[in-house]
């Protein structure tokens, strides 16, 4: 496969092209400098204490009865709309079945 070894010339040309095109897209080396990290403002769940919101009060109490569900556990989100599952026999599936016994 030696013909796939890029020549010095082609590498240098590609890199030069990439650099000049990138220079047009990247505003400057200070592209990130204009942005300050805004501490304390993070998408819910993407900071370490986001979950604190759910921990006050005894709100959690109500779900305790949910524990030993007699209901059949069926995925009922968007998976149904997306067209269900892969054909049986895919590696992951079989493996999961074996592990689950």
């Amino acid at each position: 496969m030696s013909h796939n070894k890029p020549s010095t010339l082609s590498l240098a040309a590609a890199v030069a092209g990439a650099v000049s095109m990138a220079a047009m897209t990247v505003p400057s080396t200070a592209s990130a400098a204009g942005k300050e990290k805004c501490y304390g403002v993070a998408k819910a769940g993407e900071n370490g204490c986001a979950n604190a919101a759910g921990t006050h009060s005894c709100a959690g109490q109500s779900t305790v009865a949910f524990d030993k569900g007699e209901w059949k556990l069926v995925a009922e989100g968007t998976c149904v709309e997306m067209g269900g599952n892969l054909e049986p026999g895919e590696g992951v599936n079989e493996e999961a079945k074996m592990k689950a016994g």
Partner: peptide, 29 residues
């Protein structure tokens, strides 16, 4: 209940797509 629910909230925050794919009840279980 509060420990369990806060941990579920952590997982829900990290895996919103999984939760949406399988639905809330399945995700909780």
């Amino acid at each position: 209940a509060n420990t369990l629910n806060s941990l579920i909230d952590v997982l829900s925050a990290a895996y919103p797509v999984i939760q949406r794919i399988v639905g809330d009840r399945f995700f909780q279980a």
